[in-house]
């Protein structure tokens, strides 16, 4: 019996990317450049192995990396986009919702509907995926 095995590098790469996307990660990592990404994931891996992945300081450092990356991405945006971002960050707590009926206008309170802003806690590493700590 003869078995033909073909190897397609592009397909492998795409499948790997697809597999990787099943890991829950904050979407803001799309803003990380290669150096920030290396630092972000190295830190996560190392502290996860040490069992302190959920420590407040570790989470603070992670959020700090993401904030820095987002600020860096926004700073590269054209002026109008930067103003739009500023508007959106300021705007989510200041929108007035009003119902106008028969000449009467009533303000509706949506203060308990603020959008989520935190990326959430990092996922725990499964025991079968232990890796060597980064140098």
């Amino acid at each position: 019996m003869t078995v033909n095995v073909t190897y397609d590098e592009e397909v492998d790469r795409l499948l790997s990317v697809r597999q990787a996307s099943r890991i829950p990660l904050p979407p803001e990592i799309a803003f990380l450049d290669q150096y920030a990404a290396r630092r972000f994931f190295s830190r996560r891996c190392y502290y996860g192995l040490m069992g302190v992945g959920n420590h407040p300081l570790v989470r603070y450092l992670e959020e700090s990396d993401i904030r820095t990356a987002m600020a860096s991405a926004v700073s590269k945006a054209p002026y109008l986009d930067r103003m739009a971002h500023y508007d959106s960050w300021r705007g989510d707590s200041a929108v007035k919702v009003i119902i106008a009926r028969n000449g009467e206008e009533t303000v509706v309170d949506l203060s308990d509907r603020t959008p989520p802003s935190s990326p959430g806690p990092p996922p725990p590493l499964s025991p079968c995926r232990r890796q060597a700590a980064p140098q």
Binding site: D81, S88, D92, V97
Partner: peptide
């Protein structure tokens, strides 16, 4: 674009 994204969010909430 930015303002439209905000509008989408708040209209969805409303």
């Amino acid at each position: 674009r930015g303002a439209q994204a905000i509008a989408n969010y708040w209209i969805s909430e409303a």
